[in-house]
Computed example of a mutant assay.
Amino acid sequence: MTRQVCERCLFTPSTCICNAVKRLKNKVRVIILQHPSEEKIAKNTAKLVNLSLIDCEIVKGENNSDFAILKSLPLESTVLLYPNEQAINLDEQAHSAELSNITHLIVIDGTWKKAYKILQLTTLLNQFKTVSFKQLPTNRYAIRKAPRADSLSTLEAVAHSLFLIEQLSPAPLYNLLDELIQKQTQHMPKHVKARYLS
């Protein structure tokens, strides 16, 4: 017997988040490279980004052949969100002129280990400039534990990036994340919920 799910958000009726989805007209196209193992994780936030942004695409895979889309992106105006030593900080005033030229934002969706694996196997990514943040926004996504202090969910990373690049308000995306957290924790015993949301 197959489980009933919402056709739009793919959550069960009791955890459907569609009432909190607000469509946003982003100028910078967002390309999410998703590790295959992330697709079936209920708490994955990439699909929330895809539901919210008018110009967004999720591509599943691990290497160059999976991500052939990268060959068609403009080299000069496409950036990869990844915190390496060469990364330009989106939140530093000195880089404001460079930000106005960005047309495409590539984001890797996966754990740190899986994101690093995608980076190693997808040499096509090496041709793009990398961007990151000097100051991270507060992590709002407590229900999915991360091993590193500088971890943000895909939704938070995209929301903050688009806010810095094109001043797109992150509030609708954060509201959707709050709705997901509320729905995913609604049936937890109080002591368990408190542990997640403290």
Rank of each mutant, 00 (worst) to 15 (best):
T138F: 05
Y141N: 08
A115D: 05
F128K: 07
T138V: 09
P137Y: 03
S132G: 10
L124E: 11
S132C: 14
T111P: 11
F133G: 00
G110R: 00
K134W: 02
K129I: 05
A115H: 10
T123K: 15
N139G: 02
Q127Y: 02
T111D: 08
T111Y: 11
A115F: 00
K117G: 13
Y116N: 14
Q120L: 12
A115I: 06
K113L: 14
F133H: 05
I118A: 10
G110L: 12
T130Y: 08
R140I: 02
T111H: 05
A115T: 07
K134F: 08
I118V: 07
Q127L: 11
T122N: 04
A115N: 02
D109G: 05
K114A: 15
G110P: 06
K114P: 01
R140F: 02
Q127R: 08
N139K: 01
K114T: 04
R140M: 03
S132R: 13
K134N: 06
Y116M: 08
Q127F: 03
D109N: 01
K129A: 12
K134L: 09
K114S: 11
A115W: 03
K129Y: 05
P137T: 06
N139Q: 01
T138N: 09
I108K: 04
K117L: 14
D109K: 10
L136H: 04
L119E: 06
K134G: 12
L124K: 08
S132V: 09
Y141R: 04
L119P: 04
Y116R: 09
L119C: 07
L119Q: 13
K114V: 01
T138H: 10
G110I: 03
T123G: 14
K117V: 09
Y116F: 13
K129C: 09
T130D: 03
Y116W: 07
L136D: 06
K129E: 04
Q120I: 08
F128S: 13
T123Y: 05
G110W: 02
T123P: 07
N126E: 11
L125R: 06
R140E: 00
G110N: 13
Y116H: 11
W112Q: 03
A115S: 08
G110A: 12
Q135T: 15
